[in-house]
Nucleic acid binder design. Structure first.
Length: 617
DNA sequence: GCCGTTTTCGGCCCGACTGTTTTCAGTCG
């Protein structure tokens, strides 16, 4: 229910903005919406308990009432009242880049605009120019924004945005006068989708102008949106996606194909840490840190952490020396916080944890080493891949090729888990073919040394929760990954029962991509995650984080719930081709967003411990 | 509408850029 509540609260906020009501009221609703979106529990479970609702940061008596009302009746009366005041097509206009509440309100009240069609009409007949602050240039920009919005403005999956950002970073590194380059924003935080790409460059003031110019002239830039010295924005072409998943509504033609907005900020080298922190966000996280700074008598901006005074001119323009600015570490330290990794910066309680960690550390050295999550998982911790396909079903590599690839990547274990018989399109194996395949896996062990090759299956969880092979067949295997592949639009109650049956079968080690969602494409199942997590914990079943950027399933909030419950997690690439191993970083980033300690992830264990666990000793 | 380590009332983050302006409003992140 979290998503539904958040969507309604944020709609209330936008309507309040539009109607010119107290903007802090709107901010409160918006903030509550974001908090609820990030919750690891389903808010429906506490909706009838006002005290529990109000214990959540950002939820007070009024918003608690609205949540309770929604849980009871399926609607929020305040939203109904607000919507009655505004024509239904007006709110959507705020999704057009460059159109904010003020402009939309003017278009509606003074220009008679009630939806996109009527907006286009007054642009076409020129009457829009009679409205205040609407000149020829504004209208030209508006037309371009409308075109863009109509092309589909779905956020770009992490795995498609990362290569574009890396291309820009590499190219900017070679520009004269550039001291440091990095990407920031939601990409650095590892969010599953990215709205735009933020590139940060450190350069001396004298170099800023030509650095910005070089950025706007990069190959692949289709259009320049903003051209300042400290800030520039362009639209850049996206390289064609992987063959296995194309991007919805975006064909792979690199010449004219889809584009993504890329923002560049140029800052002086001594401000690097402050700027990196600022542009990494999230916005909510930044606001919290600034509030904290003010309480400590300091003021934080993208140039540094400065002593607070009454002067209205920003401190960096007055030559004030910052308390900290060159690195993120020193800024966190000055704010008496442990270093918070980018993936955790979402204002989901990490600041409190970082404060406790810092306060708990006695020595100076201990304070520098303190972390909000002890042993947070890192890419290098992963030593095993437990979900991989070969040419026996729909993979591209033979058993031996797969094993050699895994060994080259430094893994001590690879599990061969081809599809089961019901996955017909994926050439799933009959029980008989599986027995031959297991023999082939055993034979491969003799040819490829230096890595444990496990015989397994990605067995379908059928619609009723039964498994696609019988018990005797599954017991031949070293590892069983059970995944839902069909009937992915089941209602939540049925889906919960289905997954619970698989978890409780006693035959499954890992629950593969538990919801079956595909980002931007298919919502997948919405089981009662609290029940799934509890059952997984009780039955010693690991929940998978499927690392493919199109899946990232479990997602961050689910992982957080699993981590809290003490449930085991597997991070796997669902390898079909050699390149798929590269997706591991996205899986690990997602795990870090869910605060997963390495210890709780079975892929980080020694071979001995992992294999012992699989044998259920 | 929410919140409290100088507050239960009076605050609520900060700067860059653009376009339409004669000094700034609106949007974005």
């Amino acid at each position: 229910m979290n998503e539904a509540v958040a969507e309604r609260l944020s709609r209330i906020a936008r309507l309040q903005d539009l109607l010119g009501e107290d903007k802090f009221k709107a901010i409160s609703h918006d903030r509550a919406a974001r908090v609820i979106e990030g919750l690891s529990i389903d808010i429906a479970t506490i909706a009838d308990d006002p005290a529990k609702l109000r214990a959540i940061e950002g939820i007070g008596p009024k918003i608690a009432d609205k949540i309770a009302e929604f849980a009871r009746t399926g609607k929020m009366s305040e939203l109904v009242e607000l919507e009655a005041k505004v024509p239904p097509g007006v709110l959507a206009l705020m999704n057009i880049p460059g159109l904010g509440p003020k402009t939309v309100a003017t278009l509606w009240k003074e220009g008679g605009v009630t939806d996109l069609a009527s907006l286009k009409r007054i642009i076409a007949d020129g009457t829009i120019l009679k409205l205040p602050r609407m000149g020829a240039k504004s209208v030209e920009k508006l037309k371009e924004s409308i075109d863009l919005a109509e092309q589909g403005s779905a956020r770009l999956p992490l795995g498609l945005a990362a290569p574009v950002a890396e291309r820009f970073v590499a190219a900017m590194t070679d520009v004269k006068g550039v001291k440091q380059v990095a990407f920031a924003g939601s990409l650095r935080r590892g969010r599953e989708t990215i709205g735009d790409i933020d590139i940060l460059v450190a350069a001396a003031d004298g170099d800023a102008a030509h650095v910005a110019e070089a950025f706007r002239a990069m190959p692949g830039v289709a259009q320049v949106l903003v051209a300042g010295e400290k800030k520039s924005s362009v639209r850049a072409r996206i390289a064609p996606g992987s063959a296995r998943f194309s991007v919805e509504g975006r064909s792979g033609d690199a010449e004219v194909g889809p584009t993504v907005q890329v923002d560049l900020r140029v800052v002086p080298p001594q401000s690097w840490g402050a700027a990196l922190m600022y542009f990494t966000g999230s916005k909510e996280f930044n606001i919290r840190l600034r509030e904290r700074s003010l309480k400590m008598g300091l003021t934080l901006n993208e140039y540094g952490l400065f002593p607070e005074d009454d002067d209205k001119t920003p401190p960096q323009q007055r030559g004030i020396k910052p308390v900290a600015s060159e690195t993120e570490e020193e800024i966190f330290h000055a704010l008496r916080l442990a270093y918070i990794p980018p993936e955790m910066r979402e204002d989901r309680g990490e600041i409190d944890r970082a404060e406790q960690a810092s306060a708990g550390a006695k020595s100076k050295a201990a304070k520098h080493a303190a972390a909000p999550v002890e042993g947070l998982i890192e890419l290098a911790d992963i030593k095993a891949e437990l979900h991989a396909h070969t040419t026996a079903s729909d993979g591209r590599m033979s058993i031996e090729e797969l094993a050699r690839n895994a060994r080259e990547r430094g893994f001590h274990t690879i599990a061969v888990t081809d599809h089961s018989k019901s996955s017909v399109i994926a050439n799933g194996l009959s029980a008989e073919r599986l027995r031959d395949h297991v023999a082939a896996i055993h034979a491969a062990r003799k040819k490829v040394k230096g890595i444990h090759i496990l015989a397994g299956s990605e067995v379908d969880i059928l619609a009723d929760g039964s498994l696609d092979y019988d018990q005797a067949t599954l017991e031949l295997l070293d590892v069983v990954v059970a995944s839902p592949h069909n009937a992915l639009s089941q209602d939540p109650a049925t889906a919960t029962k289905r997954l619970l049956r698989a978890i409780e079968s006693g035959l499954v080690h890992i629950l593969g991509h538990p919801t079956g969602r595909l980002i931007n494409r298919r919502a997948g199942l919405s089981p009662d995650m609290a029940k799934i997590v509890d059952a997984a914990k009780a039955n010693d079943v690991a929940l998978e984080i499927n690392a493919h950027w199109m899946r990232l399933d479990l997602r961050d909030t689910h992982i957080r719930a699993a981590v809290d419950a003490g449930c085991l997690i597997a991070i796997d690439c669902d390898v079909h081709a050699a390149d798929d191993f590269d997706n591991l970083r996205f899986g690990v980033q997602t795990a870090r967003r869910g605060w997963l300690p390495a210890e709780q992830c079975i892929n980080t264990w020694s071979a001995q411990r992992l294999i012992g666990w699989l044998k259920r000793d």
